[in-house]
Simulated assay, not measured.
Amino acid sequence: MTVFTEPETGYLGSQRIGRLATVDEHGQPQANPVAFFLNEDGTVDIGGFAMGRTKKWRNTETNPKVALVVDSLVSEQPWLVCGVEIRGEAERRTGPHTLGAHLSQEVIRIHPRWVYSWGLEDVPRAMSRTVD
């Protein structure tokens, strides 16, 4: 099964910032704005300037469940929003990557398990599905 539909792939490719939600060892959620990179295999990489020193990096060590929301306001009159929510498992990777030389070697790779999108088609509607 393809992870993302064509409208989702197009939308995610046109956006630069999303919000990554992680959960710490005490069950407390944390959400941070992050840059993300969509990979051809349907995984999503999250990089940063000092990723290995961040709370989101530490959180994914104890709980790999994550969610990434990428959304935008299309119009205020009428009110139209669109976006994609990706829930999945985080894989912590360390080493060389192609995300940019200015980013640290630590990367959080999201393996999507569930995707929900809204407002991406000509007729705005929501669509959710499990991807495994």
Rank of each mutant, 00 (worst) to 15 (best):
residue 53 R to H: 12
residue 121 E to Y: 02
residue 87 R to Y: 06
residue 50 A to F: 01
residue 105 Q to D: 14
residue 45 D to Y: 00
residue 75 S to Y: 07
residue 86 I to K: 00
residue 64 P to E: 11
residue 66 V to A: 10
residue 55 K to A: 11
residue 28 Q to E: 10
residue 104 S to Y: 08
residue 124 P to Q: 08
residue 63 N to Q: 05
residue 61 E to G: 00
residue 32 N to I: 00
residue 27 G to A: 10
residue 35 A to K: 06
residue 86 I to T: 04
residue 114 W to E: 15
residue 103 L to I: 06
residue 112 P to Q: 14
residue 110 I to P: 03
residue 119 G to S: 07
residue 120 L to A: 04
residue 43 T to V: 03
residue 98 T to E: 15
residue 44 V to S: 06
residue 50 A to S: 09
residue 41 D to W: 06
residue 44 V to P: 09
residue 64 P to G: 09
residue 85 E to R: 12
residue 33 P to C: 07
residue 94 T to N: 11
residue 45 D to H: 04
residue 119 G to V: 01
residue 29 P to L: 07
residue 31 A to D: 11
residue 101 A to Q: 13
residue 108 I to M: 01
residue 115 V to W: 02
residue 62 T to V: 11
residue 115 V to P: 08
residue 73 L to W: 06
residue 69 V to L: 15
residue 77 Q to V: 04
residue 69 V to R: 07
residue 29 P to E: 09
residue 96 P to L: 09
residue 65 K to I: 00
residue 91 E to Y: 01
residue 84 V to G: 11
residue 37 F to I: 03
residue 98 T to V: 03
residue 90 A to H: 01
residue 75 S to E: 13
residue 102 H to L: 11
residue 84 V to D: 07
residue 111 H to V: 13
residue 37 F to D: 15
residue 68 L to D: 09
residue 55 K to S: 10
residue 99 L to V: 01
residue 125 R to L: 00
residue 36 F to K: 00
residue 50 A to N: 12
residue 32 N to L: 03
residue 109 R to C: 08
residue 65 K to M: 04
